[in-house]
């Protein structure tokens, strides 16, 4: 637990302390502790059902933890409703994209900026998203529900960027995409990060996620099993066997 325990002081933007989250009686998170620091990409990997998406739902207020604490920029957000969490600067591209299917691409992007009052920069931000994803510019007036999976994924990421987040949560941005699209998405994730946004990246594609990230956490059935530098995790015997498909 060395990396997770490091007390980065001012550098830590998000901290989860012993978070327990339930779905009814199902105990999905059994004490998650993790940090995200300014400027970094942190990845959260693990098998299906480990609790990665639930961790994100706990952070963004859709599923409040029953125990533990979530602190963002020094503020306790454990029990804040989702719209307040967004207002504070955490936005998300959720698992399965969750676009508004009967709104156009442009309207979806507009919804991403919903909680922002500064309409002045809106155009600039839309243009930034279009320059990251030229395909979206071509499709701007198409209903989001009618786009291909890859296009929808771009739109979901673009929509999350429209909030000008201080922290970006990405849940399986490469899911269901062709290898060439996956490369492209990871390139853009790096680019967004280089422009200054810290990212918490949930991924099935552990290899690429660990390549992109500075640090990583490995989840197993509701717990953090491993926490280390991404590079160290890539070398880790256990990780290589379980998640990188090596024998």
């Amino acid at each position: 637990m060395s990396a997770a325990q490091t007390n980065g002081g001012g550098g830590v933007i998000l901290r989860l302390e012993d978070v327990h989250t339930y779905y009814g009686a199902i105990h999905a998170l059994k004490g998650i502790s993790l940090d995200v620091r300014e400027g970094e990409i942190v990845t959260l990997i693990g098998a299906n059902g480990a609790g990665k998406s639930t961790t994100l739902r706990s952070i963004n207020g859709l599923n409040h933890p029953r125990r533990g604490r979530i602190v963002f920029q020094g503020r306790d957000i454990t029990n804040e409703p989702p719209h307040e969490v967004v207002k504070m600067g955490i936005s998300q591209s959720p698992e399965g994209r969750k676009l508004f299917p009967r709104m156009t691409v442009r309207e979806n992007l507009e919804m991403g900026a919903f909680q922002r009052r500064d309409r002045a920069n809106f155009k600039e931000d839309v243009d930034r998203v279009y320059s990251l994803f030229p395909r979206l510019a071509e499709r701007r007036n198409q209903n989001a529900g009618t786009m291909s999976g890859g296009e929808q994924q771009m739109c979901a990421i673009g929509r999350a960027l429209m909030a000008r987040p201080k922290l970006l949560l990405l849940d399986e941005p490469s899911m269901g995409l062709a290898p060439i699209f996956v490369e492209k998405i990871f390139e853009i994730v790096r680019e967004i990060n280089e422009q200054g946004t810290p990212i918490l990246l949930v991924e099935q594609n552990a290899l690429m996620a660990l390549d992109a990230a500075e640090r990583g956490y490995v989840m197993e059935t509701g717990r953090i099993a491993l926490a280390d530098d991404a590079h160290a995790l890539r070398q880790n015997e256990q990780v290589r066997k379980a998640y990188l498909g090596e024998t």
Partner: peptide, 25 residues
């Protein structure tokens, strides 16, 4: 209107609407 758009978004996907900063309640 802003509220009207929030209504349409909430009708299409309530969780996603909340993630956009819409006060669903």
């Amino acid at each position: 209107t802003r509220q009207g758009k929030a209504m349409r978004a909430t009708a299409q996907d309530r969780d996603a609407a909340a993630m956009m900063g819409i006060n669903v309640n």
